[in-house]
């Protein structure tokens, strides 16, 4: 058992535990924290695969920016425990076995039919210089379209989250 495999299993165990914990928790803030654990573990997996820049961006953008947005919204709306209804019990009854069956099926197919392809640690160095050259030459058009998408998202978020001008201001209790 190589060090690479041990590290993969350790990070993978954290990711799996976080994913299961996200389903098990009823309070959104606990789910958010377990999702952050999943993202940190995935950053470790990216480092094992040699994608250093992707790992750094995963921590900075995903765990840093997007999850802060989530936690901020949870705090802002002051959400409580989620309420379970009859429909959600039925969904749990069918959803959890369905997930297990789907995971086992995927695992069986992958482990059996994927051949002997193995990935070495740091197989493909994804340093910022190489990524940047690829991003600004070969993927320049998608990159520019992405900037338009971000601009639209910013404007949409501002418009949606701002108070409607016609509605009367609500009194503070």
């Amino acid at each position: 058992m190589s060090v690479h495999l041990i590290l993969f299993l350790a990070f993978g165990a954290v990711a799996v535990a976080g994913g299961v914990n996200l389903l098990a928790q009823t309070h959104p803030i606990n789910s958010a924290l377990s999702l952050i654990a999943v993202m940190a573990a995935l950053a470790g997996e990216y480092l094992l695969l040699g994608a250093e820049f992707v790992a750094a961006v995963q921590v900075i953008v995903y765990a840093g920016a997007i999850m802060v947005l989530f936690v901020f919204t949870i705090m802002l709306l002051n959400t409580g425990e989620e309420e379970r209804t009859k429909g959600s019990h039925i969904a749990i009854l069918f959803g959890i076995p369905g997930m297990l069956v789907a995971s086992l099926l995927v695992a069986w197919v992958m482990l059996r039919h994927s051949g002997t392809g193995a990935v070495a640690a740091g197989a493909l160095p994804g340093d910022p210089r190489t990524i940047g050259q690829l991003l600004f030459h070969e993927f320049l058009l998608p990159f520019e379209i992405t900037s338009v998408l971000i601009l639209i998202a910013i404007m949409g978020a501002v418009v949606l989250a701002s108070k409607p001008p016609t509605a009367p201001a609500r009194k503070v209790d």
């Binding site: 993969f8 799996v16 959803g95 997930m99 995971s103 695992a107 992958m110 002997t116 990935v119």
Partner: peptide, 27 residues
């Protein structure tokens, strides 16, 4: 050396967790 399929199994499991959460969560 870690087989590629291990990474794909982990990826598939996380995706399945996401689908299940999308279906069973009410918040």
């Amino acid at each position: 050396m870690v087989p590629l399929s291990y990474y794909l199994v982990l990826s598939g499991f996380l995706f399945a967790c996401g689908v299940t959460g999308f279906l069973i969560k009410r918040n």
